[in-house]
Design a protein around this nucleic acid. Sequence first.
DNA 1: CTCATTTTCGACCGCAGGTCGATTTTGTTT
DNA 2: AAACAAAATCGACCTGCGGTCGAAAATGAG
Lengths: 204, 204
Amino acid sequence: MSDISKSEKILDALQQLLEERSIQHISVSDIAAKAGIGKGSIYYYYPSKDAIVDALIKRSYEKPLQTAKTLSAKSDISSFTRMAMLFQACQNSSAIFLKQKHNTSASAQDLALLHQKYLNYLISELKPALTEIISQGIACGEIHFDYPAALAEIALIVIAVKFDNSLIPSTPEEIKDTLKGLTSLLEKGTGVPTGALAYLSILK
Amino acid sequence: MSDISKSEKILDALQQLLEERSIQHISVSDIAAKAGIGKGSIYYYYPSKDAIVDALIKRSYEKPLQTAKTLSAKSDISSFTRMAMLFQACQNSSAIFLKQKHNTSASAQDLALLHQKYLNYLISELKPALTEIISQGIACGEIHFDYPAALAEIALIVIAVKFDNSLIPSTPEEIKDTLKGLTSLLEKGTGVPTGALAYLSILK
DNA sequence: CTCATTTTCGACCGCAGGTCGATTTTGTTT
DNA sequence: AAACAAAATCGACCTGCGGTCGAAAATGAG
């Protein structure tokens, strides 16, 4: 049969279950059942339920993050398109959460741990890459701003929080509005030609 | 004896316990014991442990939030000082978390729920007030920007996330750097005189 | 075939959140 | 004060969880 390793199967099972229930309502037994193995075996591969969640988060963001990082190295492409691609990666990586059902009880709150890990991971991993891109943009005169690292962090925080859409649940219109505002603020604030960051508003 | 209501005593108990242990290591029985009542009585006042946490959060932020809201109404004060006072309220309201012990096991992760609730509450409650202030600032020509609501949300997200300092743990220097960047971005992006938002960088 | 190592398993443990009906406290009415 | 309904208190109890464990099954090298 499937020759994918058991530990991957466990992550697959959790990922599937996460599409219909919140993490607090998924027991280790559930994961085991879905993965088609005994509950005890779970603990042969992972030391705790928390560790499974961590592993899933990490696995989900590894690819988009990797492409984002290699991106920042390519200095032959314009800063703006590189930034666009990086934000695109941002969005792709939050794909898991988009499927999340908003069902019955279990207020969006109990996903907190999951989302905190996601945001923390995403921002801390992408900040260096984005800072690098911005710094290069400043060096070649495309961007005018004095705090590249801060700018990177601000943009990432807002975008990640809004994409995640769990900290401050919003309608698609509100998200668009915020992104439009961010676009305008960034363009005006960094002396960039109007429209250069327009792609931000169209994402999602 | 104490004529404060039982439901308040329960919140007091939780608040005390939170200063020495993380929420996941505080059982409902613990709360009951600390409050000096039976476990069953807890559920006479609150439907769930989660509800107690919610209530505590709400109680803690009610006062700063209230002052922030009344603030937005006072149109005789300049937009900038009102914004300053509102951000100050932001900072005050995050006081609970500062006492948090960073002890033994229980990585910062299991505070996630608490922090998520804090951020969500703070931002959703303050956004209307800040939007109002900004709108008035635009109306009287002090601020130049087309998306007041988006601007309010962006500023609140960044400030709340950085003040909370749990989503993206940073050193005080990093926080200051980000706030300085935010100040500069806002000033340049909203056509406001340099230095008008300088108080932001000095907070904390 | 042997036998040591790896892998699998589900009964079991301790404990947490939450329920329940019995009991006590409170306050109103006569 | 007596009577009674309503509000409040309680802790034994239930359920289901994350995690442990030793025994069994699978693996594979010699």
